[in-house]
Nucleic acid binder design. Structure first.
Length: 399
DNA sequence: GATGCGTGGAC
DNA sequence: TGTCCAAGCAT
């Protein structure tokens, strides 16, 4: 008797067989009791216990966590979330916070537009709920539509929030669930080209009586058993039902999407220092990559240009100043999702002109000891370290 | 519907 | 030193 599912099962209606659905639910929930990740702080009550079916959980901590978790692993998020909740413990605190403070708390997490959208979302929600009511989960919106209309909240995040906070029956489709379901049905389509079917399957399987627990169990299964590499099928509650396992090579699924090609460029950066040893920084435009973050001015090297020429030209174009390009401070590679950049960073001296934000929001002279109060993307943090190191050494030499 | 968006973990 | 991808969303 075949107990597994084939990739045509869903289309053929086999998965709608209530007995098979029940078997999948009960084996997963049973597994979850003793093997789930029961340590996730925003999934617990104030007493640190698992919530029962009738309990709401605090919404704001879940909202923050779910946005941080977009394209980011749980273990990376945990320390950021802890720090965030100490600095901005309530919705009101976030709504009232300065953007620099928000971005500083996000610094290092990447995809910085998430932080700015979450900030906007907090203000919309506060308007909706009102300050006296913002601490009571009962007063928050509970339907998928309302959540999805908020900036930075898509279907998955909205479903996660309302199933986690209110135990409402809304399915999920994150990276873990995509991998688990793709293997379960043995789909040979790359998950992101099969979203409609996977959403349907996630909804079909969801235990409507225990949505919070079921969704968490499904994600935990993906994160701890049905991993990308070396899945531990012998411990999997769905082993006997899994098409990928029955095929003998579960690791072969899901199939990869199109390989993405990184473009390469050399970036010249100028660290302009004045007589007080303040350094010039500028704030990136809100729209576009890493919007609202601060940086050191610079730009892409053209073909027939020396790096000194690049830096002088970029600083002329971006700040309207003439500089003398001095010694090289540091040089390094840094990769982004879609491009690989080689940064070459020189110290510079201002010759003429007053720096103006011609292609940024604002320019500012900052003491080295104050740089920590400005949110910088990762690449700039290497430059800051090198700069501080440099002045530490030159101070030592002067003694 | 394809593409752009940061950083770090795992292999 | 590279590749792939992670609790995705917006455009």
């Amino acid at each position: 008797m075949a107990v597994g599912f084939s990739q045509n099962d869903l289309a053929n209606g086999v998965l709608e067989n209530p007995q098979k659905i029940d078997a999948l639910r009960s084996t997963l929930l049973q597994w979850f009791k003793s093997n789930g990740r029961h340590y996730i702080p925003w999934k617990l009550t104030k007493d640190g216990t698992l919530p029962n079916e009738n309990q709401y959980l605090a919404v704001y901590p879940i909202l923050v966590a779910e946005v941080m978790l977009q394209q980011t692993q749980l273990k990376v998020v945990l320390p950021y979330w802890e720090k965030w909740m100490l600095a901005l413990p309530t919705l009101v605190d976030l709504a009232k916070a300065e953007e620099d403070k928000v971005l500083l708390l996000w610094q290092g997490l990447g995809y910085y537009s998430r932080a700015r959208r979450l900030h906007v979302t907090s203000r919309i929600l506060l308007n909706l709920i009102g300050i006296p009511n913002s601490l009571n989960p009962a007063n928050w919106p509970k339907d998928l539509e309302s959540w999805m209309n908020l900036p930075g909240i898509g279907r998955n995040t909205a479903g996660s929030i309302i199933s986690s906070a209110f135990n409402l029956p809304s399915p999920l489709l994150d990276g873990n669930v995509k991998r688990v379901l793709t293997r379960l049905i043995g789909s040979t389509k790359t998950p992101n080209k099969d979203l409609a079917r996977l959403w349907k399957l996630s909804d079909l399987l969801l235990d409507k009586n225990l949505p919070r627990t079921f969704n968490q169990a499904l994600m935990d299964l993906g994160a701890t058993i049905c991993t990308k590499y070396n899945p531990i099928c012998t411990n999997c509650p769905w082993q006997n039902y899994c098409s990928a396992y029955n095929s003998g090579n579960p690791e072969n699924l899901p199939v990869k999407g199109q390989k993405l090609i990184l473009s390469k460029a050399v970036i010249g950066v100028g660290l302009i220092l004045n007589k007080n040893q303040d350094v010039l920084i500028d704030q990136r435009l809100d729209e576009g990559s890493m919007g609202g973050m601060w940086e050191f001015p610079g730009g892409k090297k053209e073909k027939d240009e020396s790096i000194e020429m690049t830096i002088a030209r970029e600083l002329r174009e971006e700040l309207g100043v003439e500089v003398k390009v001095g010694k090289k401070l540091i040089e390094f590679d840094h990769s982004y999702t879609h491009k690989k950049l080689h940064f070459i960073v020189h110290l510079c001296e201002l010759i003429s002109g007053k720096p103006k934000p011609l292609s940024s929001q604002e320019v500012r002279w900052v003491k080295l000891s104050d740089l920590q109060n400005y949110p910088f993307p990762k690449a700039n943090s290497y430059m800051i370290s090198a700069l501080k190191e440099y002045f530490l050494i030159s101070k030592t030499k002067m003694k």
